[in-house]
């Protein structure tokens, strides 16, 4: 199993996130409103904040390990600027994880060959693809993605999500957009008040149920 979360309890101030069990073996999307606890959940799984419970990555209990040793790549909503030229940064990450031979393949897969000699001036979408390339080269057990397309225009959003779908890797993908979740995910979980209320997956009709669940949360606001 790529990523397993059991009996997780994480706190951010007075807000508490509780997750009894969450398995990630494909693209699993967590959908929820602002403040439902999605980022707190990812932070707890990544080890960025303290949490009780068990997080296992590639069958290994990583609950007590710092983020850098969990084997979970964490892609942020605001993409991080590459610290050096893109090619140098990717090679640096690859050297650390023994994946130098994969740099060319990853770059081709994400279609970012033209970005390699660049250092600055990348668009938000380009930065996010470079972040994803670095994350791939870290050869993680699973990806954690926190609204990775929230700052992208529609075309870049679609391009990024197409890449995520084509990765065929375990991804815990947080978004507040049910349409995006239906597009990108194999399993969709709805989160509200720090709890995962329901996960549906498999057939498209089942995935679309989540939209109706989400709609039921938002209907009082309309």
């Amino acid at each position: 199993m790529a990523l397993l979360v059991e009996n997780l309890v994480a706190r951010r101030g007075s807000f508490v996130v509780r997750v009894d069990r969450l398995e990630v073996n494909s693209v699993v999307s967590v959908v929820g409103r602002n403040g439902s606890g999605k980022t707190t959940l990812l932070d707890a799984i990544a080890g960025v904040i303290k949490a009780e419970g068990r997080v296992a990555a590639c069958g290994r209990d990583v609950s007590r390990l710092p983020p850098e040793r969990r084997g979970l790549a964490y892609v942020q909503s605001v993409p991080v600027d590459p610290p050096t030229r893109v090619d140098r940064f990717l090679r640096m990450v690859a050297r650390m994880h023994g994946t130098e031979a994969e740099v060319g393949e990853v770059v081709r897969r994400l279609g970012i060959e033209a970005l390699l000699p660049r250092r600055g001036g990348l668009s938000t979408g380009q930065k996010q693809l470079v972040n994803l390339a670095a994350a791939l080269l870290a050869r993680p057990c699973a990806f954690l993605m926190d609204e990775p397309t929230s700052h992208l225009d529609w075309l870049n959003k679609k391009a990024f999500n197409d890449v995520v779908k084509a990765l065929k890797m375990p991804v815990l993908y947080v978004t507040h957009d049910p349409f995006e979740a239906i597009y990108v995910a194999d399993v969709i979980c709805v989160m509200e008040g720090g709890r995962i209320l329901r996960c549906v997956g498999g057939r498209r009709e089942e995935l679309e149920q989540v939209y109706r669940v989400a709609e039921s949360f938002w209907s009082p606001l309309r």
């Binding site: 932070d43 990544a46 960025v48 710092p66 983020p67 850098e68 040793r69 969990r70 979970l72 790549a73 964490y74 892609v75 942020q76 605001v78 991080v80 600027d81 610290p83 990450v93 650390m96 994880h97 972040n131 670095a134 994350a135 870290a138 993680p140 954690l144």
Partner: peptide, 22 residues
Amino acid sequence: EERAEAFFRALGFSGLRLLLLL
């Protein structure tokens, strides 16, 4: 504004290298 630390730590960087990357 930018959660660069979480990103780089998840890539495996720590210590002085993490600070220099930041």
